[in-house]
Design a protein around this nucleic acid. Structure first.
Lengths: 344, 344
DNA sequence: CGTTCTACGTATACCGTTCTACGGATCAGT
DNA sequence: ACTGATCCGTAGAACGGTATACGTAGAACG
């Protein structure tokens, strides 16, 4: 009856709603965006119609002129449960907003990341949260010039063009070394990540903290860093090799938990007992650390808070802020069995 | 000079390309979609211009009339590394296509899933892959009526409206029970998931397999299932409770690895040795199973293959198939230390 | 009472594609 | 030479919103 709109298909559009409510299309659009110049009466009328017709705005049409209300989230991979915490924080921050996070996985590969991000830009996403990006800094600059961006786990404290959220990785690494030294370990080796050599990558900062604390503890002669890629197989062989060395380290500081868990596994395979033959510490304090069979000492950086802040900053930036903000949380060491004082 | 297009902004559109190549907009569009009626000469000319101008199609504009080339992937959560395997398979299948997966996390909550999917539909995504959806079957039906869908971990072998990809969960559970029985365990309890009672959920099938195999082994008097939600805390207390029972089970079959790892942890806390005091088996054969400290027997269902098939089926369906296809892989038990024959 | 404001609504251009309908050219067969 | 048929390319109407420019009515003001 009232369906005078000529639309052949059944789709409920802004036009249908306008017709039903007896107002103009523009008025409905205003209500949708709650823009200036709508009376309460009009708003009520329109909202009633939208409810009645079960109207849903067509995201693509919206994207042509306005917002998409979609935020792209770039994850390095899906294996590290730490990212789940970050995402929980992002979700929490966005829960009460209109924005919606859509994720892509970069597989820790520079080129995949780039093409993923290009596509997110093509899709007119309103903003981007990049977690631990592997791409080089000039690529990051290029991207952030084109789309509002917040980065988690990327250190660049002076940037104005984008915001960053980090824990204090140098301090976190220092906590680890100090803790190990206090527990009686001396020959502490860091297991790090083979990486492109730009300094924004957080692993780099953990290495700095490690060296700094080793020197402060008067252990500079024991400073020793080995690196390997992310793949489980290579991690395992690297660590096994390390543990079979004649001057086997007394403790390992692993740049991230999953590596530490592999270290525990390798140690067990070789018949070494933890912590007496080998102390192990990880980073991120993921859920697995707390299990009795791992009992892995780790550094907690509260992924939830990081995610929450990143989302908050991004929304602010979308709303117009142009100065950079750089949020840093102080990490906290959670001591467990894997680093208990050794019997001398 | 040649920039006669009146576009004020710098964006390179199909119009810019058309002007540069000296052809019509429609011709460029044809090349883009490689549609019928383009000569090689024209195609070459247009492609040269696109290259030169670094043209990228505007996804939103495209979405208004045609495809978005985006596929929505719904994940239950980010904690289970098994999903990483599935996603790897999806990526592999889509690598050579134009499609791009964009993920959302449903947090294993019915309502969040629904709103996420609604938004994916609003965004005109071309198809949907839902992994282990928690929403009730009628909601699934409703969704699949509106958008081409492939489901992983959702059992509905007769459906025509959507495709499914599963491992044979009944058989997998049977494998577990048989293996445990062969290893000398009798009182085998299954730790399952508190769930809405629809039968499409795969946990349900694992329960069926468990019961079936227990009966076949003549152990029906020992059939015993306890359920708890996903949250780590509740899992832990449930299991602890179970292990402190007077008639403590000899072995636990946990519906998924993370629960099994918690079980190992709880057992250790209580001073029980594995496998002598307690056998433990998980499901999914995630990376953690293989670590020496866990050495967890599990059922491998090759997430990579599941993901690959799901993506393949979805693309077929988008291309017009209307019959349902239901892919099933045969799972494989990977025996490790946690279920080794017990000393009697 | 006329003027100026302000608040509220409307009309409509525009965003960048897709795709149908159509026109002109070329070619094969009679 | 005439008639289709085939091939290549163009014009232009959608698609469903946003946002600007503008009109109008009532209130406030001197």
């Amino acid at each position: 009856m009232a369906a005078s709109t000529k639309s052949g298909t059944g789709r409920v559009t802004i036009k249908t709603v306008a017709a039903d409510a007896g107002v103009s299309v523009a008025a409905v659009s205003k209500v949708l965006r709650d823009a200036y110049g709508v009376s309460d009466a009009l708003r009520a009328k329109v909202q009633a119609s939208m409810e009645k017709l079960n109207y849903r705005p067509h995201a693509a049409a919206r994207a042509m002129r306005g917002r998409t209300y979609a935020l792209g989230v770039l994850l390095p991979d899906l294996r590290n449960p730490f990212f789940a915490d970050i995402l929980a924080g992002i979700n929490e921050a966005l829960e009460r907003t209109q924005y919606q996070p859509l994720m892509g996985v970069g597989q820790s590969a520079h080129m995949i990341e780039i093409s993923l991000i290009e596509s997110m830009i093509d899709r007119q996403m309103d903003g981007l949260i990049m977690i631990g990006p592997r791409m080089p800094p000039d690529a990051v600059d290029e991207v952030t010039r084109r789309i509002p961006t917040a980065l988690v786990g990327y250190y660049s404290p002076l940037a104005q063009q984008f915001d960053t959220v980090n824990d204090d990785d140098i301090y976190g690494a220092e906590l680890v070394v100090r803790h190990l030294v206090e527990s009686g370990y001396r020959r502490i080796t860091m297991v790090s990540l083979t990486q492109p050599l730009h300094e924004s990558v957080i692993v780099h900062r953990r290495e700095i903290g490690y060296r700094k604390a080793m020197m402060a503890a008067g252990l500079s002669q024991y400073i020793d860093t080995v690196s390997c890629p992310m793949s489980p197989r290579e991690v395992l062989t690297t660590i096994r090799h390390l543990l079979e060395r004649r001057d086997r380290p007394e403790a390992l500081f692993c740049w991230t938990d999953s590596v530490a868990l592999q270290a525990i596994s390798a140690a067990r395979d070789l018949g070494l007992s933890i912590p007496n033959d080998l102390g192990v510490v990880g980073y991120d304090n993921t859920t697995y650390c707390d299990m009795a069979q791992n009992s892995l000492t780790s550094v907690d950086q509260s992924g939830q808070v990081l995610g929450l802040q990143a989302a908050r900053l991004l929304v602010e930036r979308i709303d117009g802020r142009t100065q950079g903000e750089h949020f840093v949380v102080t990490p906290r060491l959670v001591a467990r069995g894997s680093s208990r004082p050794r019997r001398s």
